[in-house]
């Protein structure tokens, strides 16, 4: 079955209809195609929303729900398969959150109050995270004050374009240009500093290993 990305709207619509019909009649080729098209995206979405825990199970449950719904005739517009899968995935996320809240309520310990997962990073991971943050911070201080202000307003304070333009007296075009430049400059510097930081780590480890 052809992939979806290079198809025009009429082709894609026919593609989804064919796929849905295959699933509806229980054709294994349909199930395979559904998984091939959506597995990565569903996994990505669920992981991004809920984290990596029990991801395989969640992905599997999602596909099960989609297939069962199609077989029950709940997908009335086969050409809307993408939207349908999206709805199912979002409901999975909401259901998982509800369940997590409920199970925490049920398991609450009067003394401790909170269920805490003990998952400390190992010291090396902590160091890597710290060094990365420091490298990125140094990169931020290497760009101009105006570039730094734009990035800080947009990403940290999460101001909108309109608000930033108003506060910094910029036109929309100026804002886009400056932000794009600031981001590119920051990205270059950040990468250089991260590479330097990774090299330093490597040298330190190599020295420690040879001392042993």
């Amino acid at each position: 079955m052809p992939t979806t990305e290079n198809q025009g709207p009429a082709d894609q619509s026919a593609h989804w209809e064919q796929l849905v019909e295959q699933i509806r009649v229980g054709d294994p080729a349909g199930m395979e195609a559904l998984y091939r098209v959506f597995a990565r995206g569903v996994r990505f979405y669920l992981c991004r929303q809920l984290g990596p825990q029990e991801l395989d199970d969640k992905v599997h449950d999602t596909f099960l729900i989609v297939v069962q719904a199609i077989r029950r005739g709940e997908l009335r517009e086969p050409e809307r398969l993408m939207g349908f899968v999206r709805t199912v995935v979002r409901r999975q996320v909401a259901a998982h959150i509800d369940q997590a809240v409920q199970s925490r309520r049920d398991r609450v310990d009067v003394e401790s109050g909170i269920h805490i997962v003990d998952s400390r990073s190992n010291p090396e991971e902590v160091l890597v995270v710290k060094q990365r943050a420091e490298a990125v911070e140094r990169a931020l201080h290497c760009i101009s004050g105006r570039d730094r202000e734009i990035l800080t307003r947009f990403y940290l304070l999460e101001q909108t374009q309109e608000e930033i333009c108003h506060d910094m007296s910029l036109s929309e075009t100026q804002f886009r240009l400056l932000k794009s430049r600031a981001k590119a400059r920051f990205g270059e510097l950040g990468k250089k500093k991260l590479v330097r930081s990774a090299l330093t780590q490597f040298i330190v480890r190599a020295k420690a290993a040879s001392a042993d």
Partner: peptide, 24 residues
């Protein structure tokens, strides 16, 4: 994913920077 990483990185860095004043 790359955008997420960039935003996390810059938030970590900008989190310690002085904040600009807002006019409104």
């Amino acid at each position: 994913e790359e955008t997420d990483r960039f935003i996390v990185g810059i938030k970590q860095a900008a989190g310690t920077a002085p904040r600009p004043e807002r006019k409104r």
